[in-house]
Design a protein around this nucleic acid. Structure first.
Lengths: 348, 348
DNA sequence: AACAAATCTGGTAACGTTTCCGAAAACGTT
DNA sequence: AACGTTTTCGGAAACGTTACCAGATTTGTT
């Protein structure tokens, strides 16, 4: 199928190609009348500039990549949609790629940048174990969001990071549970094999809270999701809770480091004949919309997901355009007290 | 930052650029030794071919677009991830775009195709009201998935469509409810303003079932989600159920045309002091993973989402490569009998 | 040994843009 | 009226790749 090119438009209008180019790109050096005529012709013939040619000539593309580590969940899906919206506003296109567990996200980013001449990268999900050397090789700015802690020995000026303080917020939740009188608090956690993954940080927060309150950690109450499972899925939470229950350790509260895990765990509790919150208080983390609709509604920590996503995109664009430098933004999360957790029943 | 080009590699290896090109593209006319040397050099210098230049020369890109109508929900998010995986296998890149309610998806597709020289389009979500004329203008193959009914006057050979028979499957669910003894069955439905949207089809299935069973439709039991709301959100379901409850019509079963709507509705029921399934049976549609984890687990109709997504991508690739023609595939859905619906209590 | 055929290679013209450079035309200024 | 300035424009060279063509080399056949 034939597609008109800039030359066709030039010929049709009786002008040179450079003039048409000026019309398209809003260059100042052009007579408004000529411009208008050209634009009309373009409209009429349905001409659309060839992106590849533009990118080739400009030697970079108006595009960024969003690299997602970990399976799709509602949390990421929401972020992606918001980021896509911001891209559209800036007339950028967005390359989306889900990174498998065994793939190296930085290598992947590198390849994409070279191949597509992208202008920036957004990493969603747990990124943490990369050398400074490697990060430096990425020749475009990149922004982490909802990532685990990045090693201290990597210079802060090399990257941006946007999220909440997972350790602190996690601790806040456990403090809340303790405040409710709970002492035997189980935790369901999904961690990466190494590094300060997001799950690991939340677990640290749990330890912090217990330590400060002088409660000894009972290893039988710390339940790790199997490495083979999808970390933050409902199924993982379900299976983990089953395992916990089978372990026989008693607990009055169960904290899962993600809402989806908590929902899965509640199912296991239900099947075991335990009632939430009467027999066990349950709390989650993330604050997905769903947490407010299930019954009992889920006590959780809400991350300001929309704000985070929007700022992630905006910051990246600002860095690309030189308006801002790399930043490390920590948002406050919000503890949502709902029905699934209540004060411990002293008669027990 | 300097990036090596094919010329650099050629110079480094002491060969011509066309030879390097042959090495990269697995052309047969090349000495295996030369090829190996070139590939080594490429590896060593981290050369990656410039995609824009390739696309420009080839006059099309190894890329498709996925256009999503309607806000992100888990259903689409899952599909997108699967489609992305298929693209990766074929070394295609995927352009993702969420279409706003007031945007024309076909126009958008057209622009993208011209601009990026894409080879195909996948439409996710409710597409239905387009003229044949307009669809013809899309010069690349396109596949609809989880779409509403496309008008009969559009030639079937112009597009592919993959999904389930929403009307039939919806009817199946209502038949099931009737079989359980329910006669006063309320429905929560979200429809587009016009055309045979997916919500509309499911509503028709509801009418079909009632008609066949000789149950008169009670308009007071048909509750439409407000046009201003996100069609298939939990909030919409919640609000719709509130409205229904306020209407005062009695019902023993409530069928929501999406699981998310059902979950929202259950919350409203709970707040009204009604218990599921003892006071009201509830059922949904879609079969998202979540439906199995909430309590009571949700009776629903499961669409074979993974199969649908995978086939959508594969079919598109096959059409692009000429291996297959446009097809219209209808999968069977599966009725999942779970806890949220039970036989009507005859004592009432 | 001579020739044909098969294999391999390098040069070069595109692909459709943008951008630089210089020219032409229109305008002010004296 | 002659000059400098500003505005507007067209030509042409890139950007990095692929594909064609023609040549060079090797292999096979008689």
């Amino acid at each position: 199928m034939f597609e008109p090119t800039i030359k066709d438009i030039a010929r049709l209008c009786g002008v040179g190609v450079s003039t048409v180019s000026r019309a398209i790109n809003n260059h100042p050096d052009i007579n408004p009348e000529t411009k208008e005529k050209i634009l009309r012709t373009i409209e009429e013939y349905g001409y659309v500039p060839n992106n590849s040619a533009r990118n080739l000539k400009r030697s970079d593309a108006k595009a960024i990549a969003v690299l997602v580590k970990g399976m799709s969940n509602l949390f990421f899906a929401n972020m992606i949609e918001i980021i896509e919206g911001e891209c559209k506003k800036k007339h950028y296109s967005m390359e989306l790629s889900y990174i498998e567990a065994d793939e190296d996200e930085v290598d992947m980013a590198q390849r994409l940048v070279k191949e597509k001449r992208l202008r920036g990268i957004i990493f969603l999900g747990g990124m943490f174990a990369h050398s400074e050397e490697k990060l430096k090789k990425l020749s475009v700015p990149f922004v982490f969001s909802t990532a685990g802690a990045i090693p201290e020995n990597i210079s802060k000026s090399l990257y941006s990071n946007i999220g909440v303080d997972d350790r602190r917020e996690s601790r806040r939740m456990v403090d809340y549970l303790i405040g409710l009188g709970h002492r035997r608090i189980a935790i369901i956690v999904a961690e990466a094999e190494e590094g300060q993954s997001i799950g690991r940080l939340r677990l640290e927060g749990y330890y912090d809270a217990l330590r400060e309150s002088g409660i000894e950690v009972n290893p039988g109450l710390v339940c790790h999701v199997s490495q083979k499972m999808i970390p933050f899925s409902m199924e993982s939470g379900y299976l983990a809770a089953k395992k916990l229950l089978a372990g026989g350790e008693e607990f009055t509260a169960l904290y899962a480091v993600a809402d989806t895990l908590a929902i899965g765990a509640e199912r296991a509790l239900y099947e075991a004949g335990l009632s939430v919150p009467d027999d066990v208080s349950v709390s989650g983390y993330d604050g997905i919309e769903l947490a407010n609709y299930i019954t009992p509604s889920l006590t959780t920590v809400r991350q300001p997901i929309e704000k985070m996503a929007r700022e992630t995109a905006r910051l990246l664009f600002d860095i690309i355009s030189g308006k801002r430098q790399h930043q490390h933004i920590v948002y406050e999360a919000e503890l949502l007290e709902r029905e699934s957790a209540k004060a411990v029943d002293l008669r027990k």
